[in-house]
Design a protein around this nucleic acid. Structure first.
Lengths: 203, 203
DNA sequence: GCAATAATTAAACAAATGATTTAATAATAT
DNA sequence: ATATTATTAAATCATTTGTTTAATTATTGC
């Protein structure tokens, strides 16, 4: 057995895509087997059960999704604005390559918030991050309004993540094709940091 | 039979909540019956089938969700800023009373975009709305930057809707309780129009 | 008050769905 | 060559779930 057996790898990557798109209950082991071009029994042969395979993928996904926040937001040597730019670019990269990730994570939390918290508790609390500390200091000095930092985090996440959550909605409502929307989303790399900065001038 | 038979009404309202929370496939007729405190057979007695009941509720939900946009965004006698205020207040009202609505709509679109489009095609195209026309005119004059109006619509929707889509995520990441988050969301009635306005000063 | 219709119930049906296992075969490595 | 690993087709086995039936109770019109 190789450490990254070809078949094993193909099952996992296929399962990742399908699980992220349809969730645990919405996914049939037969779908995974068919999409991966492998025999159904091999799924259990390599991963013991559907649940074990799912848990494996979910942990990796959570790690990918939250791992970047940690690094960017707790960097002691960047300014607030630099962190905005870093955050936007990192997240647009991750989400562009993995469009179903936000919905997957949100559904996962919804199913069992308690179980989820226990899985990410290793990550540092975002509310205590260097980013939030820097924001509070600016607010103290009077450079930015004294609003709850959650607004800032929420606005930043909204502007970055929402297009991926709501892309089918947006496509329908604005009569925009997937490829046009992709172009528009990429314009946001430059625009979102500017927008967030200008929002911090009003209260 | 009364026009709004008590039992019939209770089934529909219970079904609305459960369908919006769990979707069609994720909902069992037995769940609805139990939650409504009625006998299982009554669901079929009043609504013929699970599918018919679901379709009924879905149409009403779509109507509630998109009906407000139409009115606000095509009002000839309000300014852009007045429309922002109207939009934010209307949507926060609807979504606060119906927190699972955005997720429900997005999932519904995902399942069958084509079928969904045919259900909302009665609504006027948002991209041709008075709101967007007014924005384009302001851009021509040079009062706002010449960006794709989709950015404006997307930012507005993001800031209003995202907190409801991602509330479980936000609660977990920022260690915020549901009631605290509710207070924060209500602060946004006043803030979002200001933010959007200030965003329109940069490009 | 009676008869017809409507509302409600418990129980059964049935049909599919879908994860997992088994036992046999092929491939690979020692 | 043989022991281990990988792969396959088929069966199993439990369960879930929407729907119907047939009997009972409540309501309404006359």
């Amino acid at each position: 057995m190789l450490q990254e057996n070809d078949t094993e790898f193909r099952i996992k990557e296929t399962a990742r895509i399908i699980f992220q798109k349809n969730g645990f209950a919405g996914t049939k082991t037969r779908d995974i087997a068919e999409a991966a071009g492998i025999n159904l029994a091999l799924l259990n042969y390599y991963f013991r059960s559907k649940k074990k395979l799912y848990d494996l993928i979910m942990l990796e996904t959570i790690h990918d999704f939250f791992g970047s926040i940690e690094l960017v937001m707790n960097n002691e040597s960047t300014t607030i604005y630099e962190k905005l730019v870093e955050f936007v670019n990192r997240y647009l990269d991750i989400l562009s390559a993995n469009k179903d990730m936000p919905m997957f994570i949100i559904n996962e939390i919804k199913i069992d918030p308690h179980a989820f918290v226990s899985k990410i508790e290793v990550f540092k609390n975002v509310s205590d991050s260097v980013f939030v500390q820097q924001f509070k200091e600016e607010a103290r000095i009077g450079n930015v309004p004294k609003i709850n930092p959650i607004h800032l985090l929420m606005n930043l996440s909204s502007l970055v993540i929402f297009p991926f959550l709501a892309s089918p909605l947006i496509e329908v409502v604005t009569h925009t094709s997937k490829s046009e929307l992709e172009v528009i989303i990429n314009e946001r790399r430059r625009l979102i940091p500017l927008w967030i900065q200008s929002m911090l001038k009003v209260s």
